[in-house]
């Protein structure tokens, strides 16, 4: 699959310009600018309460910024809602997995494929037998390592399998960028290692903006890191630059990292 998200000459896939969001006196997002370049994994780190969630929610469209703009794949998306942004190919995974617990693995991925191909308003054909949906759905399930689990209801999946399912659903959007909100949360060491490998492969499909607490994973995966503290980005750079940055060491890494 030829992907616009892997050509470095094309300029940033996702660009945030001077985003500001205040809640009363608190500036949760304080003049934040950020780019996500083709082919990279860009990690966003920061202590609790730094405003990572608020920033993410402005990128997904759940929260409107007070000022500033978000550009995606060359167009301004500041005024679009979450569904429209997803349709443009901004795929996301959630901090707490957001799946459809009553549905099977197959039905979950079918929903994502349906969203990417024509939406909800088809009243006649059974999607489980729809040749426009089914082959792609099975491909995504296979790529995320869930083959053989198609008929299992989500409520009975393990934590790691749910993470994989979220990624399968993100892939179904034919994404141009991934927005992954703490994908390592709650994973055991072994599961985290598997998932690190899966995430590393994702960048070949589209660039990844990764919000993550697991520093081992961040340092292993990221091409660039941005550090958010009190709503401001205090540093952006490569892994080595961030490790060496005195301000970051002081305010976040605690000096011993």
């Amino acid at each position: 699959m030829a992907d616009p998200g892997t050509d470095p000459a094309a300029g940033p896939v996702l660009e945030i310009r001077n985003l500001v969001k205040r809640f009363g006196a608190l500036a949760a997002t304080d003049d934040v600018s950020l780019t996500l370049l083709p082919g990279e994994i860009h990690a966003l780190i920061g202590p609790n309460g730094a405003g990572k969630s608020t920033l993410i929610r402005q990128i997904t469209g759940e929260v409107r910024p007070d000022s500033g703009a978000v550009f995606f794949a060359g167009t301004g998306i500041t005024g679009l809602g979450p569904a429209a942004r997803s349709r443009l190919g901004l795929a996301r995974s959630f901090q707490v997995s957001q799946l459809l617990p009553d549905y099977t693995v197959l039905q979950n991925v079918l929903l994502a494929v349906a969203g990417a191909s024509g939406g909800a308003f088809h009243f006649l054909r059974n999607p489980l037998k729809d040749p426009r949906l089914l082959p792609q759905t099975l491909t995504h399930i296979e790529h995320s390592g869930l083959s053989g689990r198609e008929a299992i209801q989500v409520a009975f999946l393990s934590h790691g399998e749910r993470r994989r399912l979220e990624i399968a659903m993100a892939l179904a959007l034919r994404p141009r960028a991934f927005l992954l909100d703490e994908p390592m949360a709650g994973m055991g060491a072994e599961g985290a290692k598997d998932l690190t490998r899966l995430l590393s492969d994702l960048r070949h499909q589209a660039p990844v903006l990764l919000v993550e607490h697991d520093m081992d994973a961040v340092f292993a995966l990221a091409d660039r890191i941005s550090v958010l503290v009190y709503g401001r980005i205090i540093a952006t750079g490569t892994v080595a630059e961030i490790r060496a940055n005195p301000e970051v060491r002081h305010s976040y890494l605690g000096g011993d990292a």
């Binding site: 809602g81 979450p82 009553d102 039905q107 006649l124 729809d130």
Partner: peptide, 20 residues
């Protein structure tokens, strides 16, 4: 139908439907 699939999904988790 596909509509029913999405309707049931919206019952379970609207955030997921938007993400799709």
């Amino acid at each position: 139908s596909r509509f029913g699939l999405v309707l049931g999904a919206a019952r379970q988790n609207r955030i997921r439907v938007e993400a799709a």
